[in-house]
């Protein structure tokens, strides 16, 4: 069947002048970056809509559509992809206004007869076309110490045992693939680039509620400042966007309740 695909094209941005789709951006194309504390900026991200027509099957993935467009119509079209089956998280983009994985979204999922609109994720600097700079996202991830910190005060004599019940406590948050769909769907992030964001909180939860971990307090400290969990407005966009069905708002709520209990 014939489909129409509208893609947001953004010319390649050098680091300092990268603009953020959906937020303000540097007015000068080639000027220095303006931090959040700077003067008001004057334009949205530079770019334009490009419309393509092509043949596709209803069971084609949007990733297949992009690959076909790139190889047959426009080799300059730029996007990220890797495994192509929903596990690496590389191809999260905005499809018809919602964050989804391109490799897990089928043409038939998007309603017949509508143009398919593809845009880069909102709230992160755009590098080119559908590729965004993941560094701010990953910086937030690192800030919550996303690795097991076990008790090393004594030399262990047995394994660190964990019962199935203890594992179940955090099992849902082990599923994160760092695709950024959740964090870039959050209205808080769009207006506050410093917001820690849902993904970092999910990965904090994964360790905080792991019975083998002892560094919950350090992570709570990272999450309790002005840009941490208390900024969450329970908008639920993250839960809807997550391709791994992690109940993110619920997870953030568990963190909040644990932090209040600890504060008391």
């Amino acid at each position: 069947m014939e489909i129409t695909v509208k893609v947001r094209r953004v010319p390649e941005q050098e680091g300092a002048s990268r603009s953020v789709v959906g937020a303000e951006s540097s007015g000068e194309m080639a000027g220095a970056a303006q931090p959040r504390t700077g003067k008001a900026r004057t334009s949205t991200a530079p770019g334009y809509w490009q419309t393509y027509h092509m043949e596709a099957k209803p069971t084609d993935r949007i990733l297949d559509v992009l690959m076909a467009l790139k190889s047959e119509q426009d080799g300059t079209l730029t996007f990220r992809r890797s495994c192509g089956h929903g596990i690496c998280g590389s191809d999260a983009i905005r499809i018809n206004g919602k964050n989804r994985l391109a490799c897990k979204t089928l043409v038939k999922d998007l309603g017949p007869g509508r143009a398919i609109t593809l845009e880069p994720l909102k709230g992160l600097p755009v590098v080119k076309d559908l590729v965004v700079d993941m560094e701010p996202f990953l910086a937030a991830y690192r800030s919550v110490l996303p690795y097991l910190i076990a008790d090393t005060s004594t030399t262990p004599t047995t394994e660190r045992l964990q019962s199935p019940q203890e594992h179940a406590r955090f099992e849902k948050t082990t599923k994160c693939i760092l695709c950024a769909a959740c964090t870039t769907s959050c209205p808080v992030l769009w207006t506050n680039p410093d917001y820690t964001g849902p993904m970092a909180m999910v990965n904090a939860h994964r360790f905080v509620f792991d019975s083998r971990d002892v560094a919950a307090e350090e992570r709570f400290a990272a999450l309790s400042d002005g840009e941490g969990v208390w900024r969450c407005r329970t908008t639920f966009n993250c839960t809807e966007a997550c391709p791994r069905d992690i109940p993110i708002t619920e997870v953030i709520g568990e963190l909040k309740r644990a932090m209040i209990a600890q504060a008391l």
Binding site: A23, E119, S185, T234, T235, F236, N237
Partner: peptide, 13 residues
């Protein structure tokens, strides 16, 4: 800070 296209969130948004 709300520029670009509308995000098609749901009831929560």
């Amino acid at each position: 800070g709300l520029g670009g296209t509308l995000y098609r969130g749901s009831w929560g948004q």
